[in-house]
Simulated scan of single mutants.
Amino acid sequence: MTTLALVSAKGSPGTTMAALALAVQWPRPVAVVDVDPAGGDVLYRVRDEAGGPLDPDRGLLSIGAALRRGAGETTLADHLQETAFGFPVLCGVPSPEQLAGIGGAWVHLPQVLTDHPGDVLVDAGRITTSSPVMGLVSQADVVCAVVRPDLEGSAHLRTLLRSLQAPLRVGQAGAPQLCVLAVTAYKDTAAVPDLQRLLDHEGLPARVVGALARDDKGARLLSSARVGSVARSVLARSAIEPVERLAATPTRQPGPTGLAGRS
């Protein structure tokens, strides 16, 4: 199965909203996993099957506690919560201070995601090479940088992609696929080709897979602020094209590091 890690460089391009929008259109069983070290948003944005709030005690903290008791004693499914959108989620930590509760469990999380029978969309939030989630991101099949394609966003994207090349072993066998997803106006047809030309000019080996529309109404539908049909929103409809490309990306193969590939 496929593990896709969504990351950002700086600002608020919307990795959580991107993960949720992609999950709405994902063609296979999928779970959204919130590991944002700055504090996760899934807990506050998503409703459970009955339309109520999610359980804050079930998620990254509970899986961390289970893994501390012993690797292999828990599965991702044990800590997922079903949602009103038809896919399960793993709630992240409400605040960065609670990251200490995860401890050494970070090293076991990649295998837990690998063992999950469905695809996994990981919301890793803003990331640096010293981030505690870097090890998890480096073992994903696909790493997708979410960016607002303005001047500032493009500059931070270039810096991020350069910094990721070494920890992701870009260009080596077994490295994750590196992609970019733009978040821009619905009718902005220039963002994707412009970003790809920029990356090609800079010699950055990343593929721009499409764009998500900035859609306040759709964003509210993917939160507790409004009830309605998410799939018909501009946001969700804009996710169809990038989902087709991301879901079809081949899973990584074993490389010289000896890491297992995905089936």
Rank of each mutant, 00 (worst) to 15 (best):
A9M: 10
A9N: 09
A9L: 14
A9I: 12
G11Q: 09
G11I: 11
G11F: 11
G11R: 10
S12N: 09
P13K: 13
T15Y: 03
T15S: 04
T16N: 01
T16G: 01
T16S: 12
T16H: 06
T16E: 03
M17K: 08
M17L: 13
M17W: 14
M17C: 13
M17Q: 15
A18V: 10
A18W: 13
A19N: 04
A19V: 01
A19M: 01
L20G: 10
L20D: 11
L20T: 09
L22Q: 06
L22K: 04
L22F: 11
A23M: 02
A23T: 02
A23V: 00
Q25P: 08
W26T: 13
W26P: 15
W26N: 09
W26M: 10
P27G: 15
P27A: 15
R28M: 13
P29W: 14
V30E: 04
V30K: 07
V33D: 06
V33A: 05
V35I: 15
D36K: 00
D36Y: 00
D36R: 01
D36M: 00
P37D: 06
P37T: 05
A38N: 06
A38F: 00
G39L: 01
V42N: 00
V42T: 12
V42Q: 05
V42P: 01
L43Q: 06
Y44F: 12
Y44W: 11
Y44K: 08
Y44P: 02
Y44T: 12
R45T: 02
R45W: 10
R45F: 05
V46L: 00
R47F: 07
R47K: 07
R47A: 11
R47Q: 14
D48S: 10
D48H: 09
D48C: 11
E49W: 08
E49F: 08
A50D: 13
A50G: 12
G51L: 07
G51R: 08
P53E: 14
L54H: 03
L54M: 08
L54F: 02
D55I: 11
D55E: 13
D55M: 06
P56W: 00
P56D: 09
D57V: 15
D57H: 15
D57I: 07
D57K: 15
R58N: 09
R58L: 15
R58V: 14
G59I: 10
G59L: 02
L60Y: 03
L61P: 06
I63S: 00
I63W: 01
I63D: 03
G64I: 09
G64C: 06
A65L: 13
A65I: 07
A66G: 09
A66Y: 05
L67V: 03
L67Q: 06
